[in-house]
Design a protein around this nucleic acid. Sequence first.
DNA 1: GGATTGACGTCTG
DNA 2: GCAGACGCCAATC
Length: 111
Amino acid sequence: MIKKTHYYQQVYDVVRQIPTGKVTTYGAIAEYLRLGSPRMVGWALHQGELNDSVPAHRVVNRKGELSGRNHFPTPDWMQSLLENEGITIKNATIQNFESVRWDPNTLEEAH
DNA sequence: GGATTGACGTCTG
DNA sequence: GCAGACGCCAATC
């Protein structure tokens, strides 16, 4: 159902589908959208206008580390949001990452 | 128009 | 298992 709009539009769409209390990785999004490069995801999130509808704080690198917290108004902002959703974070790193990990590929929707 | 960078990931050493 | 290098596509300088 993903329209052939700009790639970052697709990234937003996927990020928006991330359920509360769950997180995903750049690689998962890149793979799902077939961007071919996880950098595109991070690049899109940064270059694209961060809308409140896009929980970019739920997107982390494959290590579960909040690598993008540096781009938020405050480094604690990202962590606070995730903790508020029930995700345990220690030192800007998601604990129990595999438990809260959510991949768009699991949706197995139209592809 | 060429070179560099970027909220990263995977492979090789 | 850790460290370093390469790749990826697009945008910016």
